[in-house]
Nucleic acid binder design. Structure first.
Length: 653
RNA sequence: GCGCCCGUAGCUCAGCUGGAUAGAGCGUCGGCCUCCGGAGCCGAAGGUCGCAGGUUCGAAUCCUGCCGGGCGCACCA
């Protein structure tokens, strides 16, 4: 906050100065931290950029700008360095106290309504670590958007009428010869994990299709019945989907991920959302019925005229098949229109589950059991769809759908949060008992496949992380309380996994390696927790010794930290103050790894300080106070970041 | 064929809208627990930034071409 003010003021002052001195208007002043602390706290190469136009040497220009430049209060001086950089040096003491006052202040509301759709796991098998990347990215994006003052709706789309559900139903009905009664018994049986059972069954069905291609007929029949929503088969599909989604929400909750509403694909059809969207699309003229050709009998969207799709071999996208069923993209366009409130909200909602604090997850329903007082969903101003990069083409078509309906603004505010997939390292695949083929041995990674049952299940990974943390706790630092140790192990597991999913750039394929993900050292979530826990220990000991750290809001004015902070201390404050910028940039670029990267850099800097400057045993009061202030700045900043990335803060480790 | 992404240290990755001496983690080697907890800290070795041009005062970063790898372009989702 305070940093932003300084940057704005400096930027304005420099612009004004350049205008009066050289008569040159500049619209943007680059102000960033110089590479080394000794060079100052903010720097701009503006003089170099002006050199040509102003026909003067950069240093000369810099000197001219610097002399008589009005500086913000917290900036003590300006210097000219290097080839002609203008460097600004802060009043460290003043800045630190101002900043300490402002950390963690709630954001001012923007009034902007945002919808984030994420997770979207097919409800036919257990979640794997690839789904986790999606859920963690989506959830973290939400936390950042909220931190920037937006009102965010958390949606999870349930594809309950798709091929994947159909295949598991085929497994139950045709391979196992089971019906609703048997499946319900399985769901109720606490000794089987239903999502794991379906994981294997789904793979079995896939194998069966390979050996008996004629069995694909089963899939078609089953899918058709599920889409129509009639009969035993459709009911079985709904029962399976519901049971699996229940498991998925439980898995997500282990990572602190919650939702507001589950939108079911079946309801998009049954609540006539599609019919309405279809009417609109038909009148737009860009969606036409094909009388002949290879798409005879289909309704297709013409993409040839759009610049986005130029040069495509197949510029037509089928929205309605010749048998009258709607494709996935078609339904997705209708869904997207609803998210923006462009076809109203006639969904009915019922309670799906409650969280411990009483908040409700709603789900759409078309069974006439919608609740009267349910909240109203949809109608956002911006929409983020967290979906992996392989669906980039379809997301473009959804955007195009809004555009051809004349919703230019909404089309632009339909943001595809695209990220790369999670694959398996050959070593991890082998460890899973997969027979890695010789030709795959050389590959950097192997793609996971639900159909083949190849993948690391999310709950297995979490279990393994917890077990590892648990082992370390009991062998090294158990408090003796079983419940406390277990809780701590859970907190560490969450930190490790969430951090792991966030630390890579979103365009990078993660070649998932179990050993790397299990690491609690170095560039990891537990490292961040550990660093922060240690600070907490210092303050706890102070309290035990009856020393008041004097860091309460009302005490700050009287805080006697004496002289300015030395570089080792100041650097921590300066970095902490950058956090707001980092959040903003992370959301702008959808690069959430910026946040974890920043947190890691900060923790590393702090750990170095921690070893070099003891606090409790420092005899000089003012020096001890200075160090405590720095530790407190770090602690509050880290807590703020933990909230942002969903990492829990243990009180011991 | 068209489109998107990746290529930086032995391995996994940072490097922000061009800017000051290209940085971490892991691994390797060597130090540091009578001292706020060693899930930590300090140090060393290790880089033709895939290749070739171009733009610029300045390029890992921008542009063009090429090489290597991945993904997408279904009446699947």
């Amino acid at each position: 906050m305070i940093l932003e003010q300084i940057t704005d003021q400096l930027s304005d002052a420099i612009k004004a100065r350049v205008l009066t001195l050289f008569g040159i208007p500049i619209d943007r002043v680059v102000l960033q931290a110089p590479p080394r602390l000794a060079m100052g706290d903010l720097a701009t190469p503006v003089a170099m950029e002006l050199a040509k136009q102003a026909r003067k040497a950069p240093r000369q220009i810099a000197e001219a700008i610097a002399s008589g430049l009005e500086l913000p209060v917290a900036v003590s001086r300006v210097s000219v360095e290097g080839a002609g950089y203008l460097n600004f040096h802060f009043d460290r003491r003043l800045f630190t106290l101002e900043f300490l006052r402002a950390i963690g202040a709630p954001p001012s509301a923007t009034g902007h309504r945002v919808t984030v759709e994420h997770t979207n796991i097919n409800p036919n098998k257990a979640a794997h670590i690839g789904h986790l990347r999606n859920a963690v990215l989506g959830d973290t994006l939400i936390r950042c958007l909220v931190a920037l003052g937006n009102h965010v709706e958390r949606q999870n789309y349930i594809d309950d009428t798709g091929v994947q559900v159909a295949d598991v139903v085929v497994g139950f009905e045709r391979l196992l010869g089971e019906g609703i009664a048997e499946v319900e018994k399985r769901i109720a049986d606490p000794s089987v994990r239903f999502d794991y059972f379906c994981w294997d069954l789904y793979a079995r069905t896939g194998q069966h299709y390979e050996k008996h291609p004629e069995a694909i007929e089963w899939r078609k029949e089953t899918l058709h019945r599920i889409e129509k929503g009639e009969g035993e088969t459709a009911r079985l599909g709904a029962i399976v989907a519901k049971a699996i989604v229940t498991r998925h929400l439980e898995t997500a909750l282990r990572l602190g991920i919650e939702y507001d509403v589950l939108v079911k694909e079946s309801d998009i059809i049954r609540q006539r959302f599609w019919d309405r969207a279809f009417e609109l699309l038909k009148t737009s003229g860009s969606v036409v019925f094909e009388e002949e050709g290879k798409h005879k009998g289909c309704w297709v969207m013409k993409l040839a005229d759009s610049a986005e799709f130029e040069g495509m071999e197949e510029p037509d996208k089928i929205l309605v098949r010749s048998n009258g069923t709607v494709t996935y993209v078609g339904k997705d366009i209708a869904y997207q229109l609803w998210k923006f409130g462009l076809i109203g909200d006639t969904f009915a909602y019922r309670e799906f589950r409650r969280y411990d604090d009483g908040r409700i997850v709603w789900e759409t329903t078309s069974e006439g059991d919608g609740i009267e007082g349910a909240p109203h969903f949809g109608g956002a101003q911006s929409v983020y769809n967290v979906i992996d990069v392989r669906q980039g083409y379809l997301q473009k078509i959804v955007k195009e759908g809004l555009r051809i309906l004349g919703h230019q603004t909404e089309s632009e505010r339909s943001i595809h949060f695209s990220y790369e997939m999670v694959a398996l390292s050959p070593a991890t695949a082998k460890a899973l008992g997969v027979d890695v083929k010789p030709e795959d041995e050389q590959k950097a990674y192997l793609e996971m496949s639900g159909r083949k049952g190849l993948g690391v299940k999310a709950d297995d990974m979490l279990d393994e992380l917890e077990a590892k943390a648990r082992e370390k706790i009991s062998s090294e630092r158990s408090t003796g309380s079983e419940a406390d140790d277990a809780k701590l192990a859970r907190q560490i597991a969450i930190a490790a996994l969430r951090y792991f999913m966030l630390k890579y750039g979103r365009t990078k394929v993660i070649a998932f390696d179990v050993n790397e993900a299990l690491s609690f050292e170095g560039d990891s979530g537990p490292y961040l927790q550990y660093s922060t826990v240690r600070v907490g220990n210092i303050f706890r000991k102070m309290e035990e010794r009856g020393v008041d750290p004097m860091l309460g809001k009302s005490q700050l004015d009287r805080l006697a930290i004496g002289e300015e902070l030395v570089d080792d201390m100041w650097q921590i404050v300066r970095m902490s103050a950058d956090t707001d910028n980092v959040i903003r940039r992370a959301v702008e670029t959808l690069e959430l790894s910026l946040v974890t990267r920043h947190a890691f850099d900060l923790a590393q800097t702090f750990n170095s300080f921690y070893h070099k400057f003891p606090i409790l045993n420092e005899k000089d009061d003012a020096e001890r106070q200075r160090r405590a202030v720095v530790a407190e700045v770090f602690r509050r900043t880290m807590n703020q970041i933990f909230d942002l990335v969903g990492i829990p803060m243990p009180d011991r480790m």
